[in-house]
Nucleic acid binder design. Structure first.
Lengths: 213, 213
DNA sequence: AAGTGTGAATACGTTCACAGCA
DNA sequence: TGCTGTGAACGTATTCACACTT
């Protein structure tokens, strides 16, 4: 379920603040969903709540982490060390929960050899070797659009089946491979759309349906 | 519709390659969706296709751009000029289609005054003034989690109603405000979940349902 | 009394399949 | 003939509402 990470984050916050037990109502509002949905989601993992009481925070953190596969640690390679790749390498959120940046790779000889976030940037020629040697199972593509598909193919050929793509292209992959895409300009375009509708509503008439999140 | 930006990108690519007309089938596969869905999406904008022929690429680009509000230009302020903020400021995709980075703001005196992507980083104290003076209507929050809610409140008080949030927190906002959230570690967690299921499938038994994208 | 777990009802998005138009 | 536009069928996700447990 795509919402488990959200619940997990809310629960971690509560655990830090020493909260031992939480109701579906409270956890749901902390995660920004409604309580029936939350209960249904959690019920898929098993019956981890106690009627009349709520959920044990620590226990639920463990169960969700296990479900998400965060009890093991995943080696991540970042391909493309431009501004975005650098930001990702420095992003604390990766290291904190089960992810380890195991390699930074780039094609630019200016960048290869630099130290970023304690890691040495390696040449893209090493891609296949690095993936195998370090057991990389998730690759983050932060390359220009033009290079993304080719690198994607190489990464898949090297055995990776999970890719997080920041390049603004639709990657074509076999359906054994999971791709998630983050497209910054698409996010902005959706906001602009909503912004425009608000402006329209002030004056002339609107025309079509919206979606949220 | 959240998929219009996807179609738009595919269409722009086709326009560049000099393709004048496209069928729902072809456009759908370029955008990575199925053709019935594409036709239904486009039909909400009006009847811009020609039966037996397809869609005129240029015309459809214009119609979608208009629908998304990209025929006007939007002033965007980036709040938080750490690694991610810097990456966003340098990201070409913003400038290209209707978005203009109008301000970079940060609290750190080390960073204030720096020139990044041709813009001077201003102090966060200037936030409200800058928003008003430059007609900023979309704000990108790229701050640490701890600072996000407070800055979000200030931004809303200054009249902004569209926020793109990169900080790993659920922002609480009035429902007149649109927030889109990009959470890098959540994307990775979802990939890890799928990765684990693949591993499980090899050996023991799986347990629950999955979702895609 | 409080709050989970879950069938039943509802809403939503997707896909099918084809009538109708160029 | 080819392809759009769209009702109808379908499947899935969300929400309701309450029986049941602690």
């Amino acid at each position: 379920m795509a919402r488990l990470p959200l619940y997990l984050r809310a629960l971690n916050g509560m655990a830090e603040r020493g909260i031992a037990t939480v109701s579906s109502e409270d956890l749901a509002s902390a995660a920004g969903v409604n309580s029936a949905k939350l209960r249904k989601d959690l019920s898929h993992l098993g019956s981890y709540g106690t009627r009349g009481v709520g959920y044990d925070v620590e226990y639920l953190v463990y169960q969700i982490s296990r479900e998400l596969g965060l009890t093991q640690d995943w080696a991540v390679a970042i391909v493309g060390v431009g501004n975005l790749g650098r930001a990702l390498a420095n992003y604390g959120g990766f290291v904190s929960r089960g992810f380890r940046v195991a390699a930074l790779l780039d094609a630019d000889p200016e960048i290869v050899g630099d130290d970023i976030a304690g890691l040495n940037v390696e040449h893209i020629d090493e891609l296949e070797a690095v993936i195998k040697r370090r057991g990389v199972s998730i690759v983050v593509l932060a390359t220009p659009a033009a290079a993304a598909q080719e690198l994607c193919d190489r990464v898949i050929a090297a055995g990776v089946t999970s890719i997080l793509n920041f390049a603004p292209v639709v990657l074509s992959v076999p359906d054994t491979v999971d791709v998630r895409k983050v497209d910054l300009s698409i996010e902005l375009q959706i906001l602009a759309f909503h912004e425009q509708r608000k402006a329209d509503r002030m004056s002339g008439g609107p025309l079509m349906a919206v979606d949220s999140q």
